[in-house]
């Protein structure tokens, strides 16, 4: 079976997640070697995912942690020291 670009696009996500079975993986890799359009789509998607993962380095608002634990402190007291029981 000869893969068309459209068939490759359908599997880009699984390709990136290493979820393709060996046979389909081989066909897709063959296609990618000869198709600049599909390799460009694959690489751009991969780069977007790298950028997305990097976004975890997002800076928290100043004082976030202090405010969170202050609020928790109060809530812990109000909930009567018995987690799981309604206040």
């Amino acid at each position: 079976m000869k893969l068309e670009c459209k068939n490759v696009w359908e599997h880009i996500s699984e390709y990136l997640d290493h979820q393709l079975d060996a046979e389909l993986l081989k066909e897709i890799e063959n296609h990618l070697e000869n198709c600049e359009v599909c390799s460009a789509i694959l690489d751009s998607t991969r780069n977007i995912l790298v950028l997305t993962a990097d976004d975890r380095t997002y800076e928290l608002p100043l004082g976030y942690s202090e405010r969170l634990h202050k609020r928790l402190e109060q809530a812990l007291r109000e909930i009567d020291g018995s987690p799981g029981k309604p206040a």
Binding site: K6, W9, I12, V37, A40, I41, D43, S44, T45, N47, I48, V50, L51, T52, D54, D55
Partner: peptide, 27 residues
């Protein structure tokens, strides 16, 4: 849900990815 075709695209230079604007675009 088909991707955009990048005809003249080779490789995204890392400096592009590092740019603050790109991050904003992603968000």
């Amino acid at each position: 849900f088909t991707p955009a075709v990048l005809t003249d695209w080779r490789e995204i230079p890392s400096e592009v990815l590092e740019k603050k604007e790109m991050r904003e675009k992603l968000r």
